[in-house]
Write a protein that binds this DNA or RNA. Structure first.
Length: 405
DNA sequence: CTTCCACAGGAACCAGCGGACC
DNA sequence: GGTCCGCTGGTTCCTGTGGAAG
């Protein structure tokens, strides 16, 4: 352990030396998830389709509603944003009154907030709460009609909204044109969930699906092209060892052809290489990055859990030790002991069941409803993620740390 | 074949909060 | 300043259920 004997100056000197000497990145930012490139390889047909539907706006007509499906990281949002950017430019040149708000309904996840965003896009401020949603909708309609313009509303990740709040708002928006005299509205819905339409009222479905477009997952080869394209501006020449791009592409292709994941992976591989003072990004760096992404995700998710979920997870962790399975009853018993020890209130079994489901959906644990015959129905619970990462996430909470002693 | 366990998970309801409206 | 509103994060009460034990 040379590190223990070296003195601080030497260590820091060494680290600074390595980090500044080696140059891997030319422009790291182009690998970040929110970077919007002006070239999107293998999305020509989708760009064409979106553009041809929305371009009606340039002639002053209301474009057909458009519905876009595709898994995460297939370029849906990027394509739409790119087309919208150009379209708004053109409309301005031609003096057409066109407004295209893009609303992420996962971030703004209530009907209220969606409407608030819409009103804000018309240039008006809205209180964060306090008004009935129906009233807000009435206001939106009024202001919109007064302005007399063409509005294309892009609702990103719309499946979240509908699953949480139903298709009420969507239904109203698809029919809003009947109540407007001076303005027109088109809708673009974007969803990750391919079976999403089963959640919709048939009338909404047919109206929203005037035009439909599917974004297929990228293949490994296509991901390679995307990564190569970005790598050109992201890395200094010769910084990538042979096979790095191929491996990133292959790993991400396995994850449903997710381009975002592929880009993350490449970026983090580069960061690891840089930190190690290596002059090249190697395949080994990619493998490390892959593990790190998963662990970081787990630590972060666990850290941001509410206290009672953490206590449940802590119960699961100690009961399973990362190996065997446990059951709802066992977990609840352990959980009650923990809350008693901390002197805090205990949630009901009903609520705990929901919290366990949430942990399952987050991918931290996996559960399966099983019958143990006379011993009743229960959920079989196994820890799905790296126990060390889970422990780290949990111990960052002072309450849990107190329990662990 | 029937019983019966130990929960799953739906439905309805509630308290408290922050904030706008009148 | 009381009232109304939506949201969060709970509770209470309830009906449903797969399969080992009897």
């Amino acid at each position: 352990m040379a590190v223990l004997t070296a003195d601080l100056d030497d260590i820091l000197e060494d680290v600074f030396e390595r980090v500044t000497q080696t140059r891997i990145f030319k422009n790291r930012d182009v690998l970040l998830p929110d970077y919007l490139p002006d070239k999107l390889p293998h999305r020509e047909t989708q760009i064409r389709k979106v553009a041809s539907v929305l371009a009606q706006a340039l002639r002053g007509y209301r474009p057909n509603n458009l519905f876009i499906y595709g898994l995460t990281g297939t370029g849906k949002t990027a394509v739409v944003k790119l087309v919208v950017r150009k379209l708004v430019e053109k409309a301005r040149e031609r003096g057409i009154r066109l407004e295209i708000p893009i609303i992420n309904t996962k971030r703004d996840d209530t009907p209220y907030r969606v409407l608030a965003k819409l009103i804000e896009s018309l240039g008006l401020r809205v209180p964060a709460t306090g008004i009935a949603t129906a009233e807000l909708y009435a206001r939106f309609k009024k202001f919109l009609d007064k302005k007399g313009l063409l509005m294309i509303i892009v609702l990103d990740e719309i499946d979240y909204h509908v699953k949480k709040h139903g298709d009420d708002l969507l239904y109203k928006l698809t029919r809003i044109n009947e109540e407007l005299s001076r303005s027109k509205v088109s809708l673009v819905g974007i969803t990750n969930d391919v079976n999403f339409t089963s959640w919709l009222d048939p009338r909404v479905k047919s109206s929203l699906g005037e035009e439909e477009l599917v974004f297929p997952p990228y293949t490994a080869d296509q991901l390679k092209d995307i990564l190569r394209e970005r790598a050109k501006t992201a890395f200094v020449e010769g910084a990538l060892e042979d096979g790095v791009i191929e491996l990133c592409a292959a790993l991400a292709a396995r994850e449903n052809g997710d381009a975002r994941k592929a880009l993350d992976l490449l970026r983090i591989s580069g960061e690891i290489a840089q930190r190690e003072g290596s002059s090249k990004v190697t395949v080994a760096h990619v493998r490390k990055a892959w593990e790190q992404i998963e662990k970081d995700r787990v630590v972060e998710v666990v850290r941001s859990l509410p206290l009672h979920s953490k206590l449940l997870l802590y119960s699961i962790l100690t009961l399973t030790k990362g190996e065997r399975a446990t059951y709802t009853g066992e977990v609840y018993k352990r959980y009650k002991e923990l809350t008693a020890e901390l002197g805090i209130e205990t949630l009901t079994l009903r609520r705990v069941g929901d919290l366990i489901s949430e942990l399952d959906m987050l991918g931290i644990i996996s559960t399966e409803v099983v019958s143990r015959g006379r011993r009743g129905m229960t959920r079989m619970i196994t820890l799905e993620s790296d126990p060390e990462a889970v422990r780290r996430g949990l111990l960052s909470d002072p309450m849990v740390a107190e329990l662990a002693g």
